[in-house]
Computed example of a mutant assay.
Amino acid sequence: MPNERLRDALLRNGFSLEQVADATGVDQKTVERWITKGRTPYPKHRHKIAAMARESETYLWPDSVAPERKAETAAAEVVQVFPHRNVIPVELWDRLIKEASGTVEVLVHAGLFLVERPRFVKDLTAKAAAGARVRLLFGDPSSDSVALRGAEEQLGDGTLASRIRNALAFYRPLVRVNGVEMRFHDTTLYNSIFRFDDEMIINTHVYGFQGAHAPSLHLRRLSAGDLFETYSESFEAVWNLAKPATF
């Protein structure tokens, strides 16, 4: 069975069979079999290819890593646990935003706290101009899921929808920026996700609590890890269900 994930990752990053063969020290026919036949490379080759393609080994070869190692690596992917999102140091947000160069992905209802940072929208514009892919997912203010979350957080009727609309006013300058895509989702938001290249902040959601008061995880992606990849795939699933944002 062909390894379509590997094929896509190599094409997306512009790597030819020859380049992969040179990097791993094997012949092109072997690389071709890894793709078309779904053969699994040796660990040293998997690690090299995963680094080249900026993907995890567990994403490219889901069955290649033993469950015990996945569990150990997942624990290592957790850099820090914060009891509440609002105690995450400003310096950490600043560093993540500043250093991101390839991928910025945000899944929220409103994300209003981000645009309280004076340069956030300008930073996203600059990163997109430099070639980064910026994808922002907001809750659809007219959706039932937003109304339900507002009720669960005891915010008052229409408060969360209004908060989303307020946030969108700040994000409006990004509408025509090449490299920036924004969509509305109406899914149940189990976690807010903030990805900056190979690091993430996961703001878990707790029934009855607003996001700022719920726990958060700081994750760093590891090649053989599974935790970072799980949240990345979750973002992708919501993105694929979402519709273009309207302002």
Score class of each variant (00 low, 15 high):
1 M>K: 13
1 M>R: 13
3 N>A: 07
4 E>M: 13
8 D>K: 13
9 A>C: 06
14 G>M: 10
16 S>I: 04
18 E>G: 15
24 T>W: 00
26 V>I: 15
27 D>N: 15
31 V>L: 05
31 V>E: 02
35 I>N: 04
36 T>N: 12
38 G>D: 02
40 T>D: 00
46 R>A: 06
48 K>M: 10
53 A>G: 03
57 E>M: 11
58 T>R: 10
59 Y>T: 00
59 Y>L: 11
64 S>E: 11
65 V>F: 08
70 K>F: 01
71 A>L: 13
74 A>R: 10
76 A>S: 10
78 V>W: 08
78 V>E: 06
80 Q>M: 10
85 R>L: 02
86 N>I: 04
88 I>V: 09
89 P>Q: 01
92 L>H: 01
96 L>K: 06
100 A>W: 11
104 V>P: 02
109 H>F: 14
110 A>K: 00
113 F>G: 01
117 R>P: 02
125 T>A: 13
125 T>W: 09
129 A>V: 08
131 G>M: 03
131 G>Y: 01
133 R>I: 11
134 V>C: 10
138 F>N: 01
144 D>V: 14
145 S>G: 04
147 A>N: 06
148 L>W: 06
148 L>F: 10
148 L>G: 00
152 E>D: 14
169 A>H: 09
170 F>S: 14
173 P>I: 03
176 R>Y: 06
189 L>N: 03
193 I>E: 01
208 G>E: 09
213 H>M: 13
215 P>Q: 12
215 P>H: 12
219 L>G: 10
223 S>P: 11
225 G>N: 05
227 L>G: 03
227 L>W: 00
229 E>T: 08
239 W>K: 08
243 K>I: 11
244 P>A: 12
246 T>Y: 08
247 F>V: 01
